[in-house]
């Protein structure tokens, strides 16, 4: 069968994407606590790309009446309520075997979300939380490849290590499609809003993101900056090529760049309170 068709079919019947065991066990501990609130659960959920995507899927499929679909964790939490969120946590599946690259990708996603949040606020984007969310889940396609197509994934990882190519190039060669596209398909399949699915799809080609070019550009630059910083692991060790169209959207000079670095350093250190446990 055609690989692209195979992937699309799999996405249709995708039952469950695995989460990192430490996050799930932390959340499980939290729900045992009588006084825990939905809001504090949300604060942990929004640190995980898989749980965040699942939460958004749930709220968007059970609540079709919204003219605009739900794109942020905080709105999803209010609508779903404590009990449903608790169920999501208690029933979430985890990776059978956790690899260091899984944690690396998780940190990469968190770092990108942090940088994107900073830039969204600085560029006065209406809903900065939405940009962070899109950035958090921009590599969800990689999780799909990793958990649903382990053989292809192994081949991709081998290509990256042996030939020193970008993971994206290896994906194109092995699957005929790259993770951005796969993530976009999944987001569509799960009824996530276009403000998330389009930037996910085009985070390597932000100029193609149409009306969401600004969000896609921020994610694109966040990918570059976070990899440059060496925070987490995005699948290969290289800083990816820059889209100059994206840079034009959100560019910053030396003075602002310095401030951004300072803010980013602080945000990334804050995340370590969370990631250092694992």
């Amino acid at each position: 069968m055609d690989k692209i068709q195979e992937i699309k079919d799999r996405l249709k019947n995708l039952k469950s994407l695995p989460t990192l065991p430490p996050i799930v066990s932390r959340l499980n501990e939290m729900v045992e606590d009588e006084d825990v609130t939905a809001v504090s659960l949300g604060k942990v959920i929004e640190k995980d790309q898989v749980l965040t995507s699942k939460l958004l899927r749930m709220v968007n499929s059970s609540f079709f009446g919204f003219p605009q679909r739900i794109s942020t964790v905080s709105n999803a939490i209010v609508l779903l309520g404590f009990n449903v969120i608790k169920t999501l946590i208690v029933t979430s599946s985890i990776f059978d075997v956790m690899q260091s690259s899984d944690i690396g990708l998780w940190e990469h996603s968190l770092g990108c979300a942090a940088f994107s949040g900073i830039m969204a606020a600085r560029r006065n984007i209406k809903n900065p939380e939405e940009v962070s969310t899109a950035s958090l889940i921009h590599d969800i396609g990689k999780v799909v490849i990793r958990s649903e197509f382990p053989e292809y994934y192994a081949k991709i990882v081998e290509d990256v290590e042996r030939r020193g190519v970008f993971m994206r190039e290896a994906e194109e060669e092995v699957l005929g499609v790259q993770h951005g596209e796969i993530g976009g398909w999944l987001a569509d399949e799960w009824n996530l809003p276009e403000r998330l699915s389009i930037p996910i799809r085009f985070h390597h080609y932000p100029e193609k993101a149409g009306e969401f070019v600004e969000i896609a550009s921020i994610i694109h630059i966040s990918d570059i900056v976070i990899r440059a910083w060496g925070y987490g692991f995005g699948g290969d060790k290289w800083v990816p090529p820059l889209s100059h169209a994206a840079w034009e959207q959100i560019k910053f000079g030396k003075a602002e760049g310095r401030e951004i670095m300072e803010e980013l350093d602080l945000r990334l250190s804050e995340l370590k309170n969370f990631t250092m446990e694992f």
């Binding site: 939905a38 609540f63 009446g65 919204f66 209010v78 609508l79 309520g81 404590f82 009990n83």
Partner: peptide, 18 residues
């Protein structure tokens, strides 16, 4: 309009029950 009513109901129920 109906969806606004359902949204309102959800918000009230979720906050009150929590």
């Amino acid at each position: 309009g109906d969806e606004v009513i359902r949204m309102t109901a959800r918000v009230i129920v979720n906050v009150v029950s929590e």
